[in-house]
Write a protein that binds this DNA or RNA. Structure first.
Length: 916
RNA sequence: GCCCGAGUGGUGGAAUUGGUAGACACACGGGACUUAAAAUCCCGAGGAGCGUGAGUUCCGUGCGGGUUCGAGUCCCGCCUCGGGCACCA
């Protein structure tokens, strides 16, 4: 799921380890790390119990990492950051008695392996398998507590089967506008058929009943729909559909891209142009409102929610129809400001608008056609780059403003986008910056109809020519209509913007001229790619119509080929495999493939039941792990804020609507780990030479030190620079912990230190011990890993000072450390005399009695400045503390010759004497 | 331009509801051990001033105001950096 997928295939695969400093190891991590990794694997320590298996009676905890795209470059230190955070919480939850699901897998379809295949002829599957092996080895070397029995790869044929199966669920559904959810297309088909057989299932649904009636009336009128018409009606409603639309086409990649992906690839230097093509789309726009509303259910950062909200881009307003002078056509526009209708002085159509050809007058035709042609060859980038300088051409046509009947000119301009709203606007230059700029340039009238305040008195309205910028905020309606004039439209003068909007909209609705309307920025998801290394669509074409393959035909795997080159004309590589494409019965296979996002849209569900051959996931397993509100913790990079996270939510909602999953949202709590920068505070990149390879770090300092350092660097969500001396610091800390209990003999063997005693923990150590238990526990609960480690250091420093090291105290420290440095902790636990792994040892509990102190430090302030620090009994009451403070020698000089006018006492903490 | 987030020592970062600013580390300096070094252990440290000294005073959380007995924390106005969106009507 990495965005950074375009690198690495030309790099060598061997991971070279620089000469480690020939220094004595602080602790024998090169022996104990592989030892415990093998132990955990052999004992299946981290196998998660599905319902019915021993251990499934515990409460569940599902922590998910964003699975990686196994690139040729191998793991970098950014990967283990999020993985370590989830691993720590998983190990912690096991010790707290949870049945923990912590899986890992591979997002293994993707363009780099295919590009490598084009260059070298090596099959993408070979490349992919090799890269997965590298990633698996590297990840295992970090000692994460994954249940490897649940490993999945999106390229596995059995995984592809269910990705395609889910696609068919989407294909065989429509979005019901009444129920506001996906429903089986079979219901709609039944409703419009001549002899419905499932009426009981849909008769109460106004949408289906309405469709039924419409087709019945048509039949009564003798307009019996043909099979093609019925079919076309259904295809128009499917959640997966084929559309001819301007798409993002990259000639050098040889494929189309989703809107969300364009920036990523252009940033890498690829060209992306708009081009009309026939492509598969998914109707994510139907879910726009639910995707927006259900963000409220989620425990995500507000900034991440905001990114999704902005991407979905909901705006409320009205659609208004403008009649055209001397034409039967109408222009429909969307506006968020129907209150400014009296200020609409011209209209603008997008150059691609379907009416442009129809309404252009003879003398304007040449200029308009020229403009349209130029606009069509401009890429989106050109269009936005030239944003500052607005251009346009008058069509020669006039529209009639519905509120006052005025004739206003109709222009075309490329600042109006074809993909948003209706592709046409009413221009209100006084109250919209773009319209203002355009009107200034082409000397179109600017009529002010909103003022910030209404002046008492004569109320003369300033003229638009006096404005140097548009007033786009709300205010009070004026000149709507202008003084002395009356129109059929209501007078909204003096109304505040919201009321003015409501009144005008109501009138438009009443007159049939328009209606309140909600618009979204979100576009439907362009779902097909012209690639080889992706899931083929389980679709065949017959007589120009698409049809689904039966489930028994799944999985549909890409054919064996040795030429992976895209044709360059937009036809996919698969089209060249004629034997595969042409079926004996005359049908042909769909040759597009699905985007890489398809596999990552549901992998978290396959983990729940990865070996199931009957279903994508057993319903009982789904309920067990996903109830009550989905995945307990999902950690990954913020780069997926509007890609993977939006797509996966959409698929999940479709599956939810169809009854295949039990929660409306998949990822209840989501945390974005911050980027790790190079030691130079620059983004890590091969060209800068500041990339840190985790293998090197493990070789020199061990996996535990790497894990601990990544957590100690700073808050998980923060961007932070790498520091090799920082790793060394954590390495030394782990060495100190080790040597609390161990010492090295003449032969270089580590044995239990004689300082380790079986005496009970002395009272003077108890506050440090229980303070650490409390601190680490609370900080794990709040995911404040850096301060949790700091608490462990404080306890370690306290124990280091002790001559005698009580075994009980060392055991507690070992358990607290275990989630962070599991190899070291397991080894210490074993050396302290335990035969079993500590993975399921109960988490230490603290006793408040050791945290209560009987003497506190009392801060005495005079006028808010600290003047003394005194010892005071913890139970002293306010007046006692005040007396103590006033009588203190250190304070006396500050009170000399002054009068105390006020005293503030914070019990147990501070006394502030206010003097004059 | 719009929407978020963040500015704390030489560095990474700590600081419940406003209540001792700088926890814990890194880097640095000093000491112990060592023939020496590495490793380890101990000690020091926000800045400025005064004092031989134990100490002590002032300043200090991007800048300017404000609220409060008391502000890193709350309010208003700026500046800088980072992220997202970007002609979305």
């Amino acid at each position: 799921m990495d965005k950074d997928t375009g690198t690495g295939y030309d790099s060598t695969m061997d991971v070279s380890t620089p000469q480690s400093p020939k220094v004595r190891k602080q602790f024998p991590f090169p022996e104990i790390e592989p030892k415990w990794q093998q132990y955990w694997e052999r004992e299946a320590t981290f196998r998660a119990a599905n319902p019915g298996e021993p251990g499934s009676d515990k409460p569940k905890y599902y922590a998910l990492d964003m699975f990686p795209y196994p690139s040729g470059a191998g793991l970098h230190v950014g990967h283990p950051e999020g993985y370590t955070a989830t691993d720590i919480l998983c190990r912690y939850h096991r010790m707290r008695g949870f049945n923990v699901l912590h899986p890992m897998g591979w997002d293994s379809f993707g363009l780099p392996a295919e590009q490598y295949a084009v260059k070298t002829g090596q099959h993408p599957r070979v490349t992919t398998e090799r890269n997965i092996a590298t990633f698996r080895r590297q990840i295992k070397a970090l000692g994460f507590s994954y249940d490897w029995d649940r490993e999945v790869a999106t390229t596995d044929p059995e995984y592809v089967r269910w990705t395609q199966w889910i696609f068919l669920q989407i294909y065989n559904s429509y979005f019901d506008p009444v129920a506001k959810q996906a429903m089986p297309i079979a219901l709609l088909e039944d409703a419009i058929s001549k002899n419905p057989t499932r009426k009981a299932e849909w008769v109460d649904n106004p949408f289906l009943a309405g469709a039924h009636l419409a087709f019945r009336e048509a039949r009564k009128a003798g307009e019996t729909p043909t099979d093609e018409e019925l079919r076309a009606y259904l295809d128009e409603h499917r959640l997966a559909f084929v559309a001819e639309a301007p798409v993002n086409w990259s000639p050098d990649l040889g494929t189309v891209l989703a809107n969300e992906e364009v920036e990523e690839w252009t940033a890498k230097g690829h060209t992306v142009v708009r081009k009309p093509m026939r492509q598969w789309m998914l109707r994510i726009t139907d879910y726009a409102q639910r995707l927006l509303d259900d963000l409220e259910l989620l425990d995500w950062s507000e900034s991440l929610k905001d990114m999704q909200r902005n991407w979905i881009g909901r705006s409320e307003g009205a659609e208004v129809r403008f009649a055209l002078k001397d034409s039967e056509h109408e222009i429909e526009v969307f506006t968020t400001r129907p209150d400014t209708l009296f200020g609409a002085t011209y209209m603008v159509l997008a150059p691609e608008h379907e009416l442009v050809g129809e309404i252009t007058t003879g003398e304007q035709r040449l200029a308009v056609e020229d403009y349209v042609r130029k606009a069509s060859t401009k890429s989106d980038l050109d269009r936005t780059d030239l944003a500052k300088d607005k251009t346009g051409v008058f069509t020669g046509a006039y529209a009639l403003n519905p509120v006052n009947g005025e004739e206003i000119p109709v222009w075309i301009a490329d600042y109006v986008l074809t993909g948003y709203g209706t592709g046409a606007i009413m221009a209100v230059p006084a109250h919209d910056e773009r319209d203002f700029e355009f009107a200034k340039k082409y000397q179109l009238p600017i009529n002010i109809v909103v003022l910030k305040e209404i002046e008492p008195g004569d109320g003369a309205i300033p003229t638009g020519e006096m404005m140097d910028t548009a007033w786009i905020a709300e205010g009070f309606a004026v000149a709507s209509p202008p003084d002395g004039l009356r129109y059929e439209a209501p007078d909204i003068n003096g109304l505040k913007t919201p009321e003015a909007k409501a009144k005008i909209t109501a009138w438009l609705e009443e007159k049939g001229l328009g209606a309140a309307h909600v618009n979204f920025k979100l576009r439907d998801w362009l779902f097909s790619r012209q690639r080889y290394w992706g899931e083929p669509f389980p679709i065949v074409w017959r007589d120009g119509q698409h049809e689904a393959l039966p489930e028994s035909e799944l999985p549909v795997l890409p054919p064996e080929m040795d030429d992976f080159k895209p044709a360059g004309d937009g036809s996919p590589p698969l089209a060249k495999a004629r034997d595969w494409v042409d079926l004996p019965d005359g049908a042909t296979r769909e040759t597009n493939t699905m985007p890489q996002w398809a596999g990552s849209c549901w992998y978290y569900l396959r983990y729940l039941d990865p070996k199931n051959a009957e279903r994508f996931c057993d319903p009982e397993a789904e309920r067990y792990w996903m109830q009550p509100h989905g995945i307990d913790l999902y950690v990954g990079g913020v780069e997926h804020a509007v890609l993977h996270l939006l797509y996966a939510r959409f698929w999940h909602k479709v599956l939810f609507d169809l009854g295949h999953v039990s929660t409306p949202e998949p990822f209840h709590r989501l945390v974005n780990q911050g980027l790790i920068l190079g030691e130079d505070s620059q983004k890590m990149s091969k060209s800068r030479g500041n990339v840190v390879n985790p293998d090197d770090v493990i070789a020199d300092y061990g996996a535990d030190a790497l894990r601990c350092f990544e957590m100690f660097m700073g808050p998980l969500e923060q961007v932070k620079p790498w520091s090799m001396s920082g790793v060394e610091g954590l390495y030394r800390f782990l060495g100190r912990v080790w040597r609390l209990a161990m010492q090295e003999n003449q032969e270089g063997e580590w044995t239990l230190a004689p300082a380790v005693t079986n005496e009970p923990v002395p009272d003077h150590l108890q506050p440090a011990l229980h303070g650490a238990i409390k601190g680490v526990t609370e900080k794990l609960d709040s995911m404040s890993f850096n301060t949790a480690i700091s608490d462990l250091m404080v306890l370690t420093n306290a124990l280091t000072k002790e001559e005698q090291r009580p075994r009980a105290a060392l055991e507690t420290l070992t358990l607290l450390l275990a989630p962070f440095a599991p190899h070291l902790a397991e080894e210490l636990w074993s050396r302290l005399g335990h035969a079993q792994s500590l993975a399921y040892e109960p988490w230490p509990a603290f006793d408040e009695k050791w945290l209560a102190v009987d003497e506190v430090e009392l801060v005495v302030q005079v006028n808010g400045k600290v003047r003394a620090k005194l010892k005071a009994p913890a139970e002293a009451d306010q007046s006692a503390l005040e007396t103590l403070a006033r009588e203190s020698d250190q304070v006396a000089s500050w009170l000399d010759g002054k009068t105390v006018v006020k005293t503030i006492v914070v019990p147990g903490k501070l006394v502030n004497l206010v003097v004059k």
